[in-house]
Every structure is written in C-alpha cells, then in structure tokens.
C-alpha cells in the first residue's frame, strides 16, 4: 500500500464510488432476481426458494398473454434487426468506402437522427405519420418503426469496424484480379463480420427492449413483452412479472456477452 501513497494517478474515495456505481447499477436487478424465486405470493416477505413463479409464467392464468407477447417481441426483433443490419452494412460501405461526397454529412445526420431526437418525440411523430396515411396500427407498424430506429445502432459497430480495416485489403484483392463485387464478398464482408454480428445483436436487443415507441404505434390489443410488462406493473408488481423480467435480463446479458466476445476475438 505504501506504493499507492505516491501514485499520482489514484485518488482516495474513487474506488468506493466505483463500487457504489456498480452497486447502483446491479443491486436493483439482483434484488428483483432474488425475489423472483420467492415462494410467497406477496412481494414483501421472503418465504423460501421456489420456482413457482417461473412455472406460473409458462402455465399460469396469464401464460397465454405472455407467450403471445414474447412471440411478437422476438419475431419483430429478429426481422427488424436483420433488415436494419443489412441496410446499415450497405450504408457503412458507402460512408466509409465511398470517398468524400457532398451528401455524406447529410447522410450521417440522417443516420444519427433517431439517436438525437428524444424517443418520445420519435414515438409521437411515428404515430402521427401512420395515422395520417391511414396505416392500421398493429404488428407491422411496430416492425417498421423498429427497423428505422435500429439502423443507427447497427450502423455504429459496423462502421467502427470498417474504419479499422485498411482499404489496402480490397486493393490487394483487386490487384489479384478480383472484381469489386468479389473484393466485397470475399474480403471486406468476412473482415467486417465481427462488427456486423455485434451490430445485429445490439439492434436485436434495442428492438426487444423498446417500450416507448412500441407503446405509441402498437394497435389496441397488440402487445410486446415490454408493453405487457408495463400494463401488468401498472396494476401492481407481482412475482410472475419479476420472473419474466429476470429471464429477459438474463437473455439480454447473454446476448451482450456474446457480442462482446465476438468483437474481442478479432482484436
């Protein structure tokens, strides 16, 4: 410890605040996870370990509702993430490998628009848009809205990855008689793959987790997991909601961890 005394880098209290930071970030989720295993129907008292609320999610009176909501969520997330990732990959290729051009800054602005506009404003705008063109609200409106705001999230890791790939790789491919299309599919795409995978996973989670926009553009009676959870929470926090939440949290953490290691593997 005598070494630390003369370390100009370290400051007293910073370690404690870091621990506090992590506690704040993780403790509420952990507490909810613990209570999801509570045998009691009350959320106040602890009556021992039980998986009854997990069983309740799958077989209980509300299970049909949650299963449908979960199916909607996953179908939308899979399609939205796939489409958004494809669009973002093409966009990144144009932005990073398209030289300088006049519409470049404008395009970058357009891509970051969903990140700059507050989510509630996007939600209102999208609702107004669908309403004014007479588009019936339902799963399709949710999907379209999700594709749009997933694009920047897919774009960021893909373009970051692409910036790290020097263009000499394609030049070498062209020099070795590959066409530009071959240089893209055989060289650039495989090299970009870690970025594409993390872009896809992030877009997937963003779509899966979205509440505000979904809440605005979903039709009456159409639910995704977040809107179903929100509706249930409004009537009081029940243990089965904690079980669903814990499963969803676990799923997100697994996805992000996979994304992290995919990104790391290549460096």
């Amino acid at each position: 410890m005598s070494k630390a005394r003369f370390d100009v880098k370290s400051y007293p209290g910073f370690v404690q605040l870091t621990v506090l930071c992590l506690l704040i970030l993780y403790l509420p989720l952990m507490v909810v996870a613990v209570y999801s295993f509570n045998a009691s129907a009350s959320i106040v008292n602890w009556e021992g370990f039980s998986l009854r609320w997990y069983a309740d999610v799958f077989t209980g009176p509300e299970s049909a509702k949650f299963k449908l909501a979960a199916r909607n969520s996953f179908v939308i997330a899979i399609i939205a993430a796939t489409v958004a990732t494809a669009i973002a990959t093409l966009a990144a290729t144009a932005m990073i490998r398209g030289g300088k051009f006049r519409l470049r800054v404008l395009s970058l602005g357009l891509i970051s628009l969903p990140l700059m506009v507050p989510e509630i404003v996007t939600a209102v705008a999208t609702l107004i848009f669908f309403n004014s063109i007479g588009f019936e609200r339902g799963l399709l409106t949710i999907l379209l809205a999700h594709i749009a705001f997933c694009i920047p999230f897919a774009y960021l890791p893909i373009s970051a990855r692409m910036q790290g790939i020097e263009d000499t790789y394609e030049q070498a491919a062209l020099d070795l008689y590959a066409t530009k299309r071959q240089a893209f599919t055989r060289i650039l795409l495989p090299l970009m793959m870690p970025g594409i995978v993390s872009g896809y996973l992030l877009a997937f989670i963003i779509s899966l987790d979205d509440f505000i926009i979904t809440n605005f553009v979903k039709g009456a009676g159409v639910e995704t997991l977040p809107t179903a959870i929100f509706g249930a929470v409004k009537q009081g926090l029940k243990p089965n909601i904690m079980a669903i939440s814990t499963m969803l949290v676990g799923f997100s953490i697994i996805m992000v961890t996979v994304s992290y290691f995919v990104g790391k593997k290549d460096n």
Partner: peptide, 25 residues
C-alpha cells in the same frame, strides 16, 4: 472515410437508408 473503393455505387448503397429513415423518421 477510409478509402473510396465503392464510390461508384455509393448512391445505391445509401438508397435503402435514405428511404427508410426519411420516410419513417
């Protein structure tokens, strides 16, 4: 930017982005 290998097709590559984000945002 990092190179201009695909500058001839950049308009086509950006078209889906322009379309989606213009119409939906």
């Amino acid at each position: 930017t990092q190179g201009d290998t695909y500058k001839e097709v950049r308009t086509w590559l950006l078209l889906p982005t322009w379309a989606t984000l213009s119409i939906l945002v």
